[in-house]
Structures are given as C-alpha cells and as structure tokens.
Simulated scan of single mutants.
Amino acid sequence: MDFTKIVALNRPTENLVTVELTDAQIEAIIVAGLAAPIPEELYNKFHITFYSEEENKKGPVNIVVSLKDGEELESSKYLFAGMIMAQMQLATTNLLLGYQFITDEAGFIKLSTPEKKQEIGIPDNYTPIQQLRVGYPEHKVDTREMHGLSTLMERFG
C-alpha cells in the first residue's frame, strides 16, 4: 500500500473480530517494531512479546513492549517505546488489520507478575510498559475516511 495512504488510514479500531492472524502477519508487525528508529544502544533494553487471550488462538493478539528494569530514564522510556509502537501500528495498517491501545493500569500490574511474565514470555528483569491489541477489524481499514492535505491546511492556515 502507498505510504501516504497508510499514514492517512492509521488510527485505532473500535472493534476487532475473532479471526486468527497468520504467523507471517504477526512477524511483519513485530519486525516493524524491531526496526524502530531508536538509539542503537537501546535495542537490547526493550523486549517485544505477543500472546493471545484465548489459549491456542492467534487472533486478536496482544503485543507488549517491555523495558529492562532500571535501564532508562522515566522521562524517555515512553518516548522510545512509543516509537516502537508507532512502527507496529503502521505495519498493522499496511496489512489492513486493526489495532487498539491497551492502557488499563490494572492490566499492566497483572502482566508484571512473575507468573504472567513467565506464561507469556516476558523476561524476569523486564517490565511491560505498552500494549497493543492487533487483529481483524470489524470494519475495513481501507474504507475509512481520510483527511486530505487541504483539511490540515485549513486548520493551520
């Protein structure tokens, strides 16, 4: 898909349907996150994990970005994790899939327990800080209304 169109269509989806993602789709999204333009020395300080809420299902999936404990200043950890998330959002949109931001604090506390971290594959010395749920959207991504340049220019001009 054309990059300009991806950027214009890129936004969260209200509802995801229970359809499994392929391994190739999940891999493409995670590879995009791994290619985020963060400082080189930070690459080994973040960890990306995916899991499904339904056992033995691959859709929708949750993708968690975790940070190695004690490795980054509070003020910038969300900036760099956000850059990773942004890459994965663009990849998700490019695949005509949908995503939802997960911001539930209680959910992050649950993800941070040693038992849950072991269950879904987050290393012991990492703390989950951002989560994205990815899957097939209820309504097609490529039929969303796009805001053209003229709309943006009206707001700023």
Rank of each mutant, 00 (worst) to 15 (best):
G59T: 04
L42G: 03
E74V: 11
L67T: 09
A32D: 00
Y78N: 15
I38K: 04
T93L: 04
F80V: 00
N62R: 10
V31G: 11
L73K: 07
I63E: 03
M85A: 10
K77V: 06
Q89M: 15
F101G: 09
V61Q: 08
G33N: 08
L90W: 13
E27K: 07
Q87L: 03
I84P: 03
L95A: 14
T93C: 03
T93K: 04
E55K: 14
A81V: 02
M88T: 01
G59F: 12
I84N: 02
P37W: 04
I102V: 08
I26L: 11
L42T: 10
G70S: 10
F46C: 05
N94K: 05
I102M: 08
A28H: 09
S66C: 12
Q87C: 03
N62V: 10
E27Q: 10
G98S: 11
A86K: 00
V65W: 02
V61P: 09
A28S: 13
L34M: 07
P39Q: 05
L73E: 15
G70M: 10
D69P: 03
S52P: 15
K68C: 06
S66M: 13
E54C: 08
N44R: 02
H47C: 13
I38W: 02
T92D: 00
N56W: 06
I63S: 15
E71K: 12
E53W: 04
G70N: 12
P39T: 06
E71R: 08
F46N: 02
L73I: 13
E55R: 13
Y43Q: 05
K58C: 12
G82Y: 08
S66P: 12
Q89E: 06
Q87E: 01
Y78S: 11
K58S: 14
Y78E: 14
A81F: 03
Q89T: 15
A36D: 01
M83F: 08
I102S: 09
N94Y: 05
K58G: 14
I102C: 09
S52L: 11
F80A: 00
K68T: 12
N94D: 14
L79A: 01
I30Q: 03
I29M: 09
F80I: 00
F46G: 02
T103Q: 15
A36H: 01
N44E: 09
N56Y: 05
N94M: 04
M83K: 06
N94E: 11
N44Q: 07
A91Q: 01
N44T: 10
T103E: 14
A86Q: 00
E54I: 14
